[in-house]
C-alpha cells in the first residue's frame, strides 16, 4: 500500500464513523430499519490487514459506536464477530481469483455479484448478532428477524450508494 492509500483509507474510516454517529443515528425507517453504515468501514479495510489488528480495530470501533448508542458492548461484540469471520469469507470467495494482482475491496473491482455476496453475508451476520444480543429474548424472535432483515437491506442500499458515488 502506498502512503496515499493509507491516508485515504484512514480518512474514509473516520468519515464513516462520524457520519454514523452524527447523522445515521437519527435515521430509523418505520421503527424497524436502522442503518449501521459504520460496518462498511470494517468491510472495506485493506484485504491484507493482519487478522489480530483487524479484531482490535473492530473492538475499538464497536466500543466507540456503543458509547454513542448507550449499548454497552453490543456493537463491539457484533463488530468483533464480523472482524473474526471476515478473513474466512474473503478466503472462501476470492482465494482462487486475483492471484496475480492485489485484491481491492470495491464494487468496481469485485463486480456486482461477488461484492453483494461479500457485503451481504457479513452485514446480515453483523445485524443478526447485534439485534439478537440487544434483544436477549428468544420470545421476540420474529420481530428481531424482521428488524435484522430490514436493517440489513437498508445498510446494503447505503453501502451500494456509497460505492457508486465514491470516485476510484
Amino acid at each position: 500500500m502506498t502512503p496515499n492509500e493509507i491516508i485515504r483509507s484512514v480518512l474514509s474510516f473516520l468519515v464513516l464513523i462520524i457520519f454514523q454517529v452524527l447523522i445515521l443515528r437519527q435515521v430509523v425507517l418505520f421503527d424497524t430499519a436502522f442503518c449501521f453504515l459504520y460496518i462498511a468501514a470494517i468491510l472495506f479495510l485493506p484485504y491484507e490487514i493482519d487478522s489480530v489488528w483487524l479484531l482490535v480495530i473492530c473492538f475499538a470501533t464497536g466500543l466507540l459506536i456503543d458509547s454513542f448508542y448507550n449499548t454497552f458492548g453490543v456493537h463491539a461484540a457484533a463488530t468483533v464477530l464480523v472482524g473474526y469471520v471476515r478473513p474466512f469469507v474473503l478466503r472462501a470467495q476470492f482465494a482462487q481469483k486475483n492471484v496475480d494482482s492485489r485484491l481491492e475491496l470495491t464494487l468496481s473491482q469485485l463486480g456486482f455479484v461477488p461484492f453483494l455476496a461479500y457485503t451481504g453475508s457479513l452485514v446480515l451476520l453483523h445485524h443478526a448478532a447485534l439485534f439478537f444480543i440487544e434483544t436477549n429474548n428468544i420470545g421476540l424472535f420474529l420481530p428481531t428477524v424482521l428488524k435484522t432483515v430490514a436493517s440489513a437491506l437498508f445498510t446494503l442500499v447505503a453501502i451500494f450508494l456509497m460505492q457508486l458515488f465514491s470516485k476510484r
Partner: peptide, 24 residues
C-alpha cells in the same frame, strides 16, 4: 486470532451483562 477473538468477545459480554457498572 481465534484467541484474541474469544478474549474480546468475552470482554464484550462481560460489559453487556453488567452494563450498569460505573466504569462502563
Amino acid at each position: 486470532s481465534f484467541i484474541v477473538f474469544v478474549l474480546l468477545e468475552a470482554f464484550c459480554f462481560v460489559f453487556i451483562v453488567n452494563n450498569s457498572n460505573y466504569w462502563g
